[in-house]
Design a protein around this nucleic acid. Structure first.
Lengths: 256, 256
DNA sequence: CTTTTCTGTATACGTTATACACAGAACTAG
DNA sequence: CTAGTTCTGTGTATAACGTATACAGAAAAG
C-alpha cells in the first residue's frame, strides 16, 4: 500500500480501479481484492455489518487478519469497497426512446433494489465523494438520462445526487420499519407500534399537528412505507421537471 | 433500566421524555441523563463522534463507565439521545402569515444549521423512527406548516420526512467536501481535487456523460455545495407544491 | 432497628483494529 | 548458479472498547 504514484489518485482507489502497478518481484499474491471484498459482503449479508471484522473476513478467505492489510489500507476502505461491490452495475438507462424522467425513475428504483439486497450498505459509515467504480458507473448512467434536458452539468450532478440520497434515506427508513427480509427483528418489538405509543405521551398543547395526525388514523396502515420511496421519488422528479421547464423557458426567452 | 411499564414505551424513551417513575428508595442519583448527554455532546463536538466512548463520557462527568448504564441502556441509546440533544428545539414555524412553503424552507434550513453545529450528528448510526422529544417537536413544527394545504396526514408526514432526509444527506455531503469548520482535515488532501483526478481514470467510452461533465468545467468551482442544499430544497418544495396543486384540483373536480 | 432498593465502583472478559518484526517465496543482477 | 532484493502472509503484541457481574454503601420503608 504505497501512498501515491503519478496518477494523482489515493492508493486505495488505484487498486479498486485495477491500476495496480505490478510488483513482479516477491511471491505471488494468494488473494485478490475481489475475493476479500466478496467475503466481506457475504458476511455482511449473512450476519449484518456489525459482524464484519477484519478477523472474520480474513478467516472467510483463509488467511490471517493482518494479511488483509496488504490489500486494503484500513477497515473503512474495505467498507467503502463493500458498498461499491454491493451496489453492483447500474441499469442500462436511458433506454432508447426513454424520457429522462422514466430513465431516472428506473435508475432510482434500481438503486433501491440494490440496497434492499444488501441492507447494511446504506448504513455503512462511508465518508467522502463517490469515487469507486460502480458508484461512478451509476453516476454516469444518471447523467446520461439528463442529457437532453438543457440543464447545466452542475444541475445534472445535483439532481443525480438528490435522487441518490433520497433513495438511500428511504431504504434506511424502510429497514428501520422492519420490512427487511433479514429477520433480525429489533429488540423493542414492532417499531410502528412503538411509534404509535407516542400518542400516549404527547399532549395536544405541545404537539397539536402530530396529535391531529395520530387522531386521523393515518398511521394505522400496516406498512405505509413501501410506496414511501415512490412518493419521494415522484416529488423530486416533479421538482426536477419544474426546473427543466424553467431553464428551458429562460433560455428561449433570452434567445428571442 | 427496567424494561417496561404501563405506558407502552420502551424504557429508554420514558427517561428521555421525563416520565421516570420515582424510585424514592435508594440513594439519590448523583447524575442526570441531561448531564451525561451534555458531556457526550461536548466530547463529540470537540473530538468527533469516534472519540465518544463510555469511558470518556463517564470521565467527563466524573464517574466510572459502568455508572452510565444506570441512565442509558447501551451506547446506541446514548448516541440517539446525543443526536436529539444536538438537534435542539425547532424554529417557531409557521410564523403568522407565512406560507407553507416559506415555513418549510425555514424549517429545512434550520435543521441544516443545527447539523452544522454538530457535524457528527447526521453521521450518528441511529436506527429506528424519530421518537425522541426534539425530533418529535421538529416533526410537529413541520406538520404545522402543511396544515392548510389539503394534503392527507399521510402525505404531510411523507413530505416532512422527505425534507428532513434531504437536509441530513446534504449536510453530510457538505462535510465530506471538507467545508466543515472542525479542522479535522481528511487524510487524502482536498476531496474535490481527488474527485477531479477521476478524470484521468475514466474513459469516454465507459463514462461518456461523466467525461462530458468533467470537460464542461462544472466541477472547477471552488465550493459548489453551499447552495447544494438550496438546490435540493427548492426541487423538493417544487415537487410538494405540484402535489398540493394536484390534490386541490382533484378535490374540486370531485366536488363539482 | 432491619430490610429493601437503588447508586456508583471494581474487576473482568471477549473483541476489536492495527503496529511491528520476521520467515519464506519469487524474482533480478551478477 | 548464487546473492540480493522485494514482496507475501504469519505471529505476536497492544491499547481501547462495550458491557456482564458482583459488591459496597446510601437512603428510605417497615
Amino acid at each position: 500500500m504505497t501512498n501515491d504514484d503519478g496518477s494523482g489518485l489515493p492508493a486505495s482507489l488505484r487498486a479498486a480501479w485495477g491500476l495496480q502497478d505490478r510488483p513482479a518481484k516477491g511471491p505471488k499474491p494468494g488473494l485478490s481484492l475481489d475475493r476479500i471484498v466478496g467475503a466481506a459482503v457475504r458476511i455482511a449479508d449473512a450476519e449484518g455489518l456489525g459482524s464484519v471484522s477484519m478477523s472474520k473476513v480474513a478467516a472467510e478467505v483463509g488467511v490471517t487478519a493482518m494479511a488483509l492489510y496488504r490489500y486494503v489500507g484500513n477497515k473503512d476502505e474495505l467498507l467503502a469497497l463493500m458498498v461499491d461491490a454491493g451496489l453492483g452495475p447500474p441499469p442500462d438507462v436511458p433506454r432508447p426512446g426513454q424520457t429522462w424522467r422514466a430513465g431516472l425513475a428506473e435508475w432510482g428504483w434500481a438503486e433501491g433494489t440494490a440496497y434492499r439486497r444488501h441492507p447494511w450498505a446504506p448504513r455503512a459509515p462511508i465518508a467522502g465523494l463517490p469515487m469507486l467504480p460502480q458508484q461512478v458507473a451509476w453516476m454516469d448512467r444518471g447523467l446520461r438520462c439528463l442529457a437532453g434536458t438543457g440543464l447545466s452539468e452542475q444541475h445534472k450532478l445535483s439532481a443525480i445526487l438528490l435522487i441518490s440520497n433520497l433513495v438511500r434515506s428511504y431504504v434506511m427508513l424502510e429497514l428501520d420499519l422492519g420490512l427487511a427480509t433479514d429477520g433480525t427483528a429489533g429488540s423493542e418489538g414492532d417499531p410502528m407500534a412503538s411509534f404509535a405509543s407516542l400518542a400516549r405521551v404527547i399532549t395536544p398543547a405541545q404537539f397539536p399537528a402530530l396529535t391531529a395526525a395520530f387522531a386521523s388514523g393515518a398511521l394505522d396502515n400496516a406498512d405505509p412505507v413501501d410506496d414511501e420511496l415512490g412518493f419521494g421519488l415522484e416529488r423530486v422528479l416533479d421538482g426536477i421537471e419544474a426546473l427543466i421547464a424553467r431553464v428551458a423557458s429562460e433560455a428561449s426567452g433570452a434567445n428571442e
